[in-house]
Nucleic acid binder design. Structure first.
Length: 594
RNA sequence: GGCUCUGUAGCUUAACUGGAUAGAGCACCGCACUACGGAUGCGGAGGUUCGGGGUUCGAAUCCCUGCAGAGUCACCA
């Protein structure tokens, strides 16, 4: 049994013994004791005063006395207003440290038997990945790791939007202005090459619109009638009709993009188990809609278009098939979801990591799936996150005002290299090891910076200023880990003789052990709340507490008994393990030296 | 206009989902340690938690209301 449950059980027993009453869990609030007070756990007794019919202080005093007498692990208690602070014995904490050290995968939950699919990234193939995708990728990947830590089997899915008018725009511009340029001939990364033509399309398209307007045509008409757009639309029709030449060009250019994406994903340290392509899935939704129509769940308008009626949910009706029978975004999402549950019959949950601009879309998607009779619709959820803005405002791909993902990684490598060459302990490291280290630190800074913020929050990202290496940052946590490994390297020891139970603990030692005790709970909460931020904050707290301990206590003090040195090393070792595990759940690696 | 989300120190943010004197980092000022790693630690200053009501032992958190920003309500994805 864990400490918290033990204390809760004893508190309940105390209430029964003292007041002859039962309490339910809601009334027993146990929290961590705030730093300014003595103790490690605090029972909030305000809710219990109804039972005790006494003042909060008297109630706390009575329960404290009873618990102290009846619980071996409790060393002392104190009462502040309605708060009963409990301090556990050194022997208890030392024993508990041993227990924690005994787990090879401390903090990880037992297998749950649940299979969960987590979709993230989901890029378009007409342009390179940018800062917005970076947040998506880091969030999705981290949540997948967290869910695994909670014992679930996770399928990481990427839905690639590889068809549509925007793809045709890049293709058309390349045909017109590309002169056969390829990634090989230009030396450009494939996704960047294609993105270049997407921007080029927009430039020429705007020119055409301006020309038409000069002839006295109004803006709205000009936008619709510009020859380039007409031609792109024609290209899309040909694509849908399986025109061999168009399909061939489409495949070629998409493959350039996929190569580019793979590089970016690898650089970011994220990966996928399943890829889905809209060019395959967009047809799947159509038959579903036809079935829904036949069953009378959906309805058809006079022009032949098919709709879902959502007035019962106080939402506007949603179009699912156009009058000409072609599908929309929602149609293919219906098909994709159904396909996934068919493909993985034991799927218990489907989570979509998508920006909050699509909150409404997913609300509607899940409603329609439910209307169509799929009872797993309740197992679908939208992991929504806020957009990333630049100081200059919102990013716009077409206008080229984006922070490119590859540029960002390169910039971080550079910053990490400068700082590390200046401050680091790098003697004897090969150039290859150094590059790996710089990447680790640069990415550590970026990932921590992005993941420590609650996903729901919109964030402003200043590329020059945002990513710092000091304070509440990834490198700070990484540094603490390197420092611990340095200790373990330099001080002779054997972990076997670190079994110690008769130490007198100093305050920073107690709080470190108590903090280690929190880890499994944090992992669990991060899992239910899909919240990497909880782990980032925990990792920072742990690293900070370790540094406080380190500054206060000289571990390899010749005055200290060997047993004490060994105990402190064992403590440091355990902190290092948990730091590594915790950062791992954020997708952040930690170095042994830096 | 309807619906949804957000608003916390100059900046970036936390608060165990209603608990103690709102906690950190950056920047600013001042200290510590001559080492087991200074990418550190300690202290100072900085807050009407957007404003106004309400609920209760207790509100950044819940309810009402106003203000500001964003998203969405597309036969774009």
């Amino acid at each position: 049994m864990n400490v918290e449950d033990l204390l809760l059980q004893q508190a309940a027993a105390a209430v029964t013994a003292l007041y002859d009453a039962q309490v339910d869990e809601k009334q027993l609030q146990l929290q961590k004791t705030r730093k300014e007070f003595e103790g490690e756990f605090t029972l909030v007794v305000f809710p219990l005063t109804r039972i005790s019919r006494q003042k909060p202080e008297e109630t706390a005093e009575a329960i404290g006395t009873w618990m102290l007498e009846n619980t071996a692990a409790i060393q002392a208690y104190n009462v502040v207003k309605g708060f009963l602070n409990l301090a556990l014995t050194d022997a208890f904490w030392l024993g508990h440290l041993q227990t924690m050290r005994g787990f090879s995968d401390y903090g990880m939950a037992q297998p749950s038997g649940r299979t969960v699919m987590l979709e993230y990234s989901s890029p378009n193939t007409n342009k390179p990945l940018h800062l917005g995708h970076v947040r998506n990728n880091l969030l999705g990947y981290s949540v997948s790791r967290i869910l695994e830590a909670n014992g679930h089997k996770v399928i990481k899915a990427n839905l690639i939007n590889d068809r549509g008018i925007h793809i045709c725009k890049s293709m058309l511009a390349w045909q017109r202005y590309g002169n056969g340029e390829t990634p090989e001939s230009s030396g450009l990364k494939g996704d960047h090459l294609v993105g270049k033509y997407y921007v080029l399309f927009d430039t020429h398209y705007k020119e055409e619109v301006a020309e038409l307007e000069a002839k006295g045509i109004d803006n709205e008409t000009a936008k619709k009638e510009a020859p380039l757009l007409k031609e792109a639309q024609e290209m899309l029709r040909k694509w849908e009709a399986n025109d061999p030449a168009i399909r061939s060009l489409w495949e070629t250019m998409n493959n350039w993009v996929y190569d580019g994406f793979e590089t970016t994903y690898r650089d970011l340290g994220v990966s996928f188990d399943q890829y889905y392509y809209e060019s395959n899935t967009y047809l799947l939704g159509k038959e579903t809609v036809e079935e829904g129509l036949a069953k009378g769940v959906l309805y058809q308008k006079e022009d032949g278009s098919v709709w879902a009626r959502l007035s019962d949910f106080k939402l506007d009706d949603k179009l699912l098939l156009r009058a000409d029978g072609t599908s929309v975004y929602m149609t293919q999402d219906l098909g994709t979801a159904i396909e996934r549950f068919r493909q993985f019959p034991d799927l218990k949950q489907l989570i979509y990591t998508v920006g909050d601009e699509q909150n409404h879309h997913f609300k509607v998607l899940f409603l329609i799936l439910g209307m169509l009779g799929y009872n797993w619709a309740k197992d679908c959820s939208h992991l929504s996150y806020g957009m990333v803005d630049l100081p200059s405002g919102r990013m716009k791909s077409r206008e080229g005002t984006v922070v490119d993902a590859d540029d960002l990684v390169a910039e971080l490598d550079e910053q990490a290299a400068v700082a590390t060459r200046e401050k680091g302990k790098l003697e004897g490291m090969s150039e290859e090891e150094l590059q790996k280290l710089f990447r680790m630190i640069g990415l550590g800074a970026l990932k921590f910076f992005i993941l420590k913020v609650d996903p729901q929050r919109r964030m402003t990202f200043n590329p020059e200023e945002s990513v710092s290496l000091n304070g509440n940052t990834g490198p700070f946590v990484q540094y603490s880990h390197a420092r611990i490994q340095s200790l373990l390297r330099k001080i002779p020891h054997s972990m076997e003789d670190a079994v110690v139970t008769d130490q007198t603990l100093l305050a920073p030692e107690r709080s470190l052990i108590a903090l280690l005790n929190d880890y499994p709970r944090i992992v669990k909460e991060a899992g239910t709340g899909y919240s990497p931020a909880l782990l980032a904050n925990y990792g920072y707290d742990l690293a900070k507490s370790f540094n406080q301990f380190y500054n206060e206590v000289k571990i390899n003090d010749p005055q200290s008994p060997a047993a004490q040195v060994h105990f402190r090393l064992a403590l440091a070792d355990m902190v290092g393990r948990v730091v590594k595990s915790c950062m791992g759940l954020l997708g952040i690696e930690v170095p042994d030296r830096m």
